[in-house]
Design a protein around this nucleic acid. Sequence first.
DNA 1: TAGATTGTTAATCGATTAACAATC
DNA 2: TAGATTGTTAATCGATTAACAATC
Lengths: 211, 211
Amino acid sequence: MEKKISSAVIKRLPRYYRYLSELLEGGTERISSQELSQKMNVTASQIRQDFNNFGGFGQQGYGYNVAVLREEIGKILGLDQSYQVIIIGAGNLGQALANYAGFEKRGFLVSAIFDINPDKVGNMAGKVEVLDMKDLESYVASHQVDIAALTLPKAKAPEVAADLVKMGVRAFWNFAATDLNLPDNIPVENVHLAESLMRLSYNIVNVSQDS
Amino acid sequence: MEKKISSAVIKRLPRYYRYLSELLEGGTERISSQELSQKMNVTASQIRQDFNNFGGFGQQGYGYNVAVLREEIGKILGLDQSYQVIIIGAGNLGQALANYAGFEKRGFLVSAIFDINPDKVGNMAGKVEVLDMKDLESYVASHQVDIAALTLPKAKAPEVAADLVKMGVRAFWNFAATDLNLPDNIPVENVHLAESLMRLSYNIVNVSQDS
DNA sequence: TAGATTGTTAATCGATTAACAATC
DNA sequence: TAGATTGTTAATCGATTAACAATC
């Protein structure tokens, strides 16, 4: 890595990827930062600055080739690789994630789902069987696991995450309503649904009626 | 509204609320910006600046009363009210949301879930029955609906959302992988799981190994 | 070539941090 | 009162936007 890319830029990359994917599906071959900025409701200047963090994928007088740009952003996002995912917690959300086919399309492969409740162990969640938490350590020791999705109660989440780090899990997709406090080199993506809802209610109360 | 609060501040409020809730449960009566900053891994200066956007809830030489501060932030976030929620799309995610008890605790009440698939209509999802999309308009006309959670396929989402706005729905919790493009006075909270996963894979590829 | 549009520098804007006077 | 800690102003830092020369 030459220079550190700001997290503001990283946060925008998946949205670029989504728009470029749709443009490609729609048969658009090339696009200028100007056109893209109108579709996405951002400034053309920001688009060019963002892409230039990675060297610039355009051509003066022409714009950007949609397929090439999408491919490059995909690589930057690591979408040219696949990732083995386990899910910890076979509650409603855990099962919904296990069943969600959209992840496989992008190379995120759910290989197992774990639960502490003996009544759930042995059931099917999507294509995978619910395994017993007792077998977590031996499972991780004998299978490649890149990402653990945490859909277990918040009280247990930090401890289980710390254990999983020791076992060699590299990254966490955290749905538990707590911070994990893991070492800096372990990426964590938090999906705090309760916080998202609070921002929504804030905007209902404070924004929507005064316009 | 006197002056516009920046969205950077708003994004942080739910996390403050979570930490204060935990402190309160743990029996902590007062806390200084210094102590809170250490727990939350932010600067004390930022904490004081953030709270002062709303007038300042502390006392010099003492700090902040945890119960009072939590209550005030709760009010700012609109958590002193309750919200009627409908869910559009009874797939895995829609059903998981319908079953998630955590929302009721904060005043978000799921009153109905809708699906276009006749095989699903009539089934139970959590405590509510799955209703037919055909009956959506009459339902919204005869019930208070503050928030629609969108867990339907992205192709249909913008159109359904626009229709719901016409029917009087005030806000959207959008899980569909698309932008809704609604009027400015309609708050939307996007939960784009695919984008969240891409940020995670970015960090796996670009951050985790070089430390 | 002329026109279009990028890549990139410079200017502006906003958010974060530091510092300290006010005050409990 | 003395000590602690906020509220708030000023300084710094970073991100966004504007502008334009480079170049396809």
